[in-house]
């Protein structure tokens, strides 16, 4: 019996959320007294692979063949399920990233396992019953889910479990999966990734702006604030609907739900649908010229003032802080 964790990489570098998943898997392994095996698919350098030992995995299984160089939903899900069977994994952990979301139900179905997606806490065990917490109703509630049966797949929400160093001596073991042509039927034509930007779903700091910015031409200061803080940029629904910013930046109930340490909202009034997507942020700062804006009611820190006045000064204040 074991815990298997799938570790996602981007261009050969493991993602922070993947390291969170390894630490989470290690904590689960400790709970059930089972070893933790990590699985990497695709091309990753040896030095990067060795990093995984720092987070408590005993063995790293690597699958690296030409057909699997790029992420393919069905093929990766098949490989993960096959490896899970071969190491008799009772628990499979992966990150609830965009790719993880696509694979998790397929892996669970292949293994006849219960699926806990969007998990935000370590499971609790009482006998054979596992319970785990996840967000529901677009962050307006936390649901405790009971997972029955002998197997489960847990997709962990990014930024909800701190990676912890727990060095073990790790062995790296290549594995050759059996792939069916059906698994390889999808063809990836192009990948466009902005390399100089912080990825929004995983960002620790998010700088978000709304209609208070008056127009897309005024976003330079939002981007500058994000750059100074190493943050991702986001926006409210009216802004993406108006085409001022891409849909991918829309956070809220019908957009992306984010869980950063710090969420800075500029010129966003705080409609209930927007709050749903951001209320799990650890700390919320609201900048709005309307003291009655509903967003202030759920903020930790508030500044009543015009964005065009406050944001440039805030950039200077953060720069001063960073320089000291």
């Amino acid at each position: 019996m074991s815990v298997l964790v799938y570790i996602e990489h981007v261009d050969g570098a493991f993602k922070k959320s993947a390291l969170e998943a390894v630490s989470f898997a290690k904590a689960v392994g400790t709970l059930v007294n089972q070893p933790v095996y990590a699985l990497s698919i695709g091309e990753v350098a040896q030095s990067e692979l060795e990093k995984i030992g720092k987070y408590g995995a005993e063995k790293l299984i690597t699958v690296n063949q030409a057909e699997l160089k790029q992420f393919l939903n069905q093929a990766y899900a098949s490989v993960i399920a096959e490896v899970a069977k071969s190491v008799e994994a009772e628990t499979v952990v992966l990150s609830n990233s965009f790719s993880g979301k696509g694979m998790a139900p397929r892996i669970a179905a292949k293994l006849d396992a219960a699926l806990a997606d969007g998990a935000i806490s370590l499971p609790r065990l009482s006998g054979t019953a596992w319970t785990i917490q996840k967000t529901a109703f677009s962050n307006k509630a936390i649901a405790t889910e009971e997972l029955t049966g002998s197997k489960r797949v847990i997709a962990l929400t990014p930024n909800s479990f701190e990676p912890k160093e727990e060095p073990t001596s790790i062995t790296i073991e290549p594995y050759q999966p059996s792939l069916s042509p059906d698994d390889l039927s999808t063809v990836i034509k192009d990948i466009v990734r902005a390399t100089n930007q912080v990825s929004l779903p995983e960002a620790e700091i998010v700088v978000s702006a709304g209609r208070g910015m008056k127009g897309p031409e005024n976003w330079a200061m939002v981007e500058e604030l994000a750059r100074v803080l190493g943050a991702a940029t986001a926006c409210s629904k009216p802004v993406s609907d108006a085409g001022w910013r891409p849909h991918a930046e829309h956070v809220g109930q019908t957009g992306l739900a984010v869980t950063p340490k710090l969420y800075i909202a500029i010129g966003i009034s705080g409609a209930i649908q927007h709050l749903a997507g951001v209320s799990s942020s650890k700390t919320i700062v609201v900048i709005n010229k309307d003291p009655e804006a509903p967003f202030f009611k759920v903020a930790d820190y508030g500044i009543v003032g015009d964005a065009f006045d406050v944001v440039p000064q805030l950039i200077e204040a953060f720069k001063t802080y960073k320089n000291n």
């Binding site: 990836i188 034509k189 192009d190 990948i191 902005a194 390399t195 991918a248």
Partner: peptide
């Protein structure tokens, strides 16, 4: 949608 970008695929 992928983190920080998009992927175009055909199926």
């Amino acid at each position: 949608e992928i983190e920080g970008g998009k992927e175009v695929l055909s199926v």
